[in-house]
C-alpha cells in the first residue's frame, strides 16, 4: 500500500546531516527504491526547503540527499524539466505577470541571460508586418513620451534614427499635439 502513512517522519530522516546512515557512504550502492514516504504526493513543492536546510556541505558524499541522489540530478532537473504551469500561454503571455510580482521564483532555474536571449532575439506578438507604422502610439500610450513598460523590456534605447525629420519634439509636446499621430 502506498498511501500517506508516516508521510513526514521520513522528511527528517532523509535529510540527516552529519554521519551517513548505516549502509550508505561513498562505496555503498545508491538506494534505488523505495523512495521515502516524504517524497510522495506534492513533494516537488517542498523539496527546495528541505534541501536548503540540508545540503551545501563540502564533504556531503553519501549523506543527506546524496544517500540516494547524485549531485548532478539537481542541476539536470532544474535545467531541463519545466514546471507544469509553463504552458504555451505562459511562454507568450503570463510569464511576465509572474516575473512582475515574484521574480524570486524564476531564480530557482533561470539566470538573467536566459531572459535577455529570448527578449532580444524573438519578436512579441505585437510586432506584425505593419508594426513599424503603428508602433508609435503603442509605445507612447496616452500623452506620455516615456515609453511603455513593455517596450523597455527589450528596447533600452530607441534612437528613432529612421523616423521622419521633426521627431526631435520637446518632452512637453506629444506626438498627437504635433499633429502627426492621432
Amino acid at each position: 500500500m502506498l498511501g500517506f502513512a508516516s508521510l513526514f517522519c521520513f522528511t527528517m530522516a532523509a535529510s540527516t546531516w552529519g554521519e551517513a546512515p548505516a549502509g550508505s557512504g561513498a562505496d555503498a550502492k545508491k538506494i534505488p527504491f523505495p523512495m521515502p514516504n516524504s517524497h510522495k504526493g506534492n513533494w516537488l513543492q517542498y523539496h527546495g526547503a528541505s534541501a536548503d536546510l540540508t545540503m551545501n556541505e563540502a564533504d556531503s558524499k553519501g549523506k543527506a540527499c546524496y544517500v540516494c541522489h547524485e549531485r548532478n540530478e539537481c542541476m539536470e532537473c532544474h535545467n531541463t524539466t519545466m514546471p507544469k504551469d509553463h504552458t504555451n500561454t505562459w511562454r507568450t503571455l503570463s510569464h511576465g505577470f509572474q516575473a512582475e510580482g515574484n521574480r524570486d521564483r524564476c531564480q530557482n532555474c533561470h539566470r538573467q541571460d536566459y531572459c535577455v536571449r529570448c527578449h532580444n532575439e524573438t519578436a512579441p506578438r505585437t510586432h506584425t508586418a505593419n508594426w513599424r507604422s503603428r508602433h508609435c502610439t503603442w509605445c507612447h500610450y496616452g500623452s506620455s513620451l516615456a515609453p511603455d513598460d513593455n517596450c523597455v523590456v527589450c528596447h533600452k534605447q530607441a534612437l528613432h534614427t529612421s523616423a521622419p525629420l521633426g521627431h526631435t519634439i520637446s518632452p512637453t509636446v506629444t506626438c498627437i499635439q504635433v499633429g502627426c499621430h492621432q
Binding site: 535545467n79 529570448c118 532580444n120 532575439e121 519578436a123 512579441p124 506578438r125 510586432h127 506584425t128 508586418a129
Partner: peptide, 22 residues
C-alpha cells in the same frame, strides 16, 4: 524579426541547432 507563436528559447539563435553542455 516577426512574431511566431511557437518561438521559444531554442529558436533565439542563428542556427537551427542548439546544444548545452552542463
Amino acid at each position: 524579426t516577426g512574431f511566431f507563436p511557437l518561438e521559444d528559447i531554442n529558436d533565439a539563435r542563428d542556427s537551427w541547432f542548439s546544444g548545452y553542455v552542463y
